[in-house]
């Protein structure tokens, strides 16, 4: 469902050009669990942002469900992010002073098909990630592992085609990290498409397929 071809990304700062991605080509099938691995500075976060339609490549082609993503305008891209993707970030990126439930409901503010049972759905998702007793807690009252589980519930609320996770365990202790990875494995069993970006070989080991990014290119 994801077809990426010859993606290049160049950042220019103070008229110095840095080529972060140098022709990346790969595809991801529906239901696949893919890990993109690489050292810091290998361009893996940039690649993730491009896949998640948060950023645009300098060159290349990107097809998502046969849609030529790079031709869409900003509003259409926003709608695409809302409909097709669920994001899990290293820094969790929950809204502070906002309870777990409202955080999970956040993507639904921007949807065109607001479900009548949105709140029940959000509660169910929180129960599924083991936060049934933390629904009314503010994000800043939760531990890191709990916050990341709220973020996962949030990434699922719009029933996305692809879940994109950028170093989801990067800010967590090993115990919380293991729980988070268990949740991803379970989501994979539920036939969801998952793309996880990490520098951690153990985390990547959970995936079906590992793409290694080095010097802005997929290795092997």
């Amino acid at each position: 469902m994801i077809k990426i071809k010859d993606i290049e990304k160049t950042y220019s700062k103070n008229s110095v050009e840095t080529k972060v991605l140098r022709g990346v080509t790969f595809s991801v099938q529906r239901g696949e669990y893919v890990a993109i691995m690489g050292a810091s500075g290998s361009g893996k976060s940039t690649l993730m942002n491009i896949i998640g339609c948060l950023d645009r490549p300098t060159k290349g082609q990107y097809e998502l469900d046969n849609i030529n993503v790079l031709q869409l305008d900003d509003d259409a891209i926003s709608a695409l992010r809302n409909k097709k993707f669920g994001f899990v970030f290293q820094q969790f990126f929950l809204l502070e002073r906002t309870n777990a439930l409202d955080n999970v409901l956040l993507p639904l503010i921007y949807t065109d098909e607001y479900p009548a049972d949105a709140i029940q759905q959000a509660r169910k998702l929180l129960v599924n990630v083991g936060l049934g007793d933390r629904i009314e807690y503010f994000a800043n009252e939760l531990s890191g592992g709990q916050q990341q589980r709220v973020a996962i519930a949030r990434s699922l609320i719009n029933n996305p085609d692809v879940i994109i996770a950028d170093e989801p365990t990067g800010n967590l202790d090993s115990e919380s990290a293991a729980e988070i990875m268990k949740i991803f494995s379970r989501l994979h069993e539920e036939r969801r498409t998952i793309i996880i970006v990490t520098h951690d070989r153990d985390v990547a080991g959970n995936a079906q397929r590992i793409l290694e990014l080095k010097d802005g290119q997929i290795k092997g």
Partner: peptide, 16 residues
């Protein structure tokens, strides 16, 4: 800033 970024990432359009 981060609130705006989160909202945009989750599908908010500029106009939203």
């Amino acid at each position: 800033k981060s609130e705006i970024g989160i909202r945009r990432a989750l599908g908010a359009r500029k106009n939203d």
